[in-house]
Design a protein around this nucleic acid. Structure first.
Lengths: 209, 209
DNA sequence: GTCTATATAGGGATAGAC
DNA sequence: GTCTATCCCTATATAGAC
């Protein structure tokens, strides 16, 4: 598994002892992303991360104050990518059409940063605990904003359910069931997903309430 | 959060010292389900579980050989409910229509055992590790069978993507985004979901390849 | 079937040298 | 910026009494 946002491979050569200008932090995050995804956050020890990095466990504490801070940093990576899409959300003026545009953006984001989304998918318990415990870090969350919209009584229930489905559909198509479509080109997959979402959010009007 | 399949509440009075004929095992599982869902599997200690039960930590080891065995037992609960739907799968003769029927059954299952699905959703890392480590326990898995179908090259890619989306859609609508529709009656929600899945799997034929 | 007490291990985190 | 060494705590698991 590989982070798409970073050119540097996760387990690479990377000039042992020379790249120390600041890339180390990112290397730690890349390796943590891999290990957290494979083994889960809690089952991954700092020792393992340090092992892959080639240096000792305690060195990590120079870059991160705690293990949880590594988790937080990874979560903030996602948040950053989601921020673009979030800007589009206008709770006051939401409709299936606006939602479709939002989901469309999200498809692009997920395709580009799939590893990051898979990581979140597999470590929901840990990430959500982080949210509860660090409510100071009120980095308004993607899903929180989603929830707001999906519970907005002014939108018809039927539409809201379909919005939730659209969200689930792309997560399902890209992340949920392993990597079943990993061999499909992103552009193809993206197009098929947009098509599907479109059918979901703009259903044929044929005589249903 | 409450397990739907069991009449006994998760944290109840339950005749301390008298119900010892065998209901204790189920009570442990119910409480574990709650705690694992709230705090995550790894962050939940056996001591906490024992505390809620009203007796000591070590007593649990009379019923389960290890903490992991509790996880496994909960996973098997899900598997049992999924088994019905699984029986319907005929890999040799799969089509969007057959899939729709399958998903329809699954909607019912999830609605009935939502807590169990939420638990799995939030503890994927732990459950999937269990799968890898206990491959002897070849209780053929729901998602594994799904994967087989979704990678079957004989089915058009477009259809397979939509199947994955349909799966994701119901998971998204029921489990993924918190409990946004918890106040909606199951029958209403189920109907809306079936409708949405139908549109997804039987798209309007309007001039797309 | 449940208890108390204890063994054992592992992981997060800190101090201080280099 | 990284190392070694160590502290401290928590959690799983076991032994044996009741």
């Amino acid at each position: 598994m590989q982070i798409a946002s970073n050119d540097a491979p996760s387990a690479t050569i990377a000039e042992p002892g020379l790249d120390s200008q600041g890339g180390t932090r990112e290397r730690i995050l890349d390796i943590a992303l891999d290990l957290f995804t494979e083994q889960g956050y809690e089952k991954t020890s700092l020792r393992e991360i340090a092992e892959r990095l080639g240096f000792s466990k305690a060195a990590i504490y120079y870059h991160f104050a705690s293990k949880e801070d590594i988790l937080l940093a990874l979560h903030l990576r996602l948040h950053q990518f989601g921020a673009d899409a979030l800007g589009t959300i206008d709770e006051a003026n939401m409709s299936p059409t606006v939602w479709a545009a939002l989901i469309g953006q999200l498809i692009g984001q997920i395709l580009e940063h799939r590893a990051l989304f898979v990581f979140h998918e597999r470590n929901r318990a840990a990430v959500e605990r982080l949210h509860r415990e660090r409510h100071e870090t009120e980095h308004d969350d993607l899903e929180a904003r989603f929830r707001e919209v999906l519970t907005n009584q002014e939108i018809a229930l039927r539409d809201r359910v379909r919005m939730a489905c659209a969200f689930g559909a792309i997560v399902g198509g890209l992340v949920l069931v392993g990597n079943v479509f990993s061999d499909v080109p992103s552009s193809t997959l993206g197009a098929l997903l947009r098509e599907a979402v479109d059918d979901l959010l703009n259903p044929r009007a044929s005589g249903r309430p």
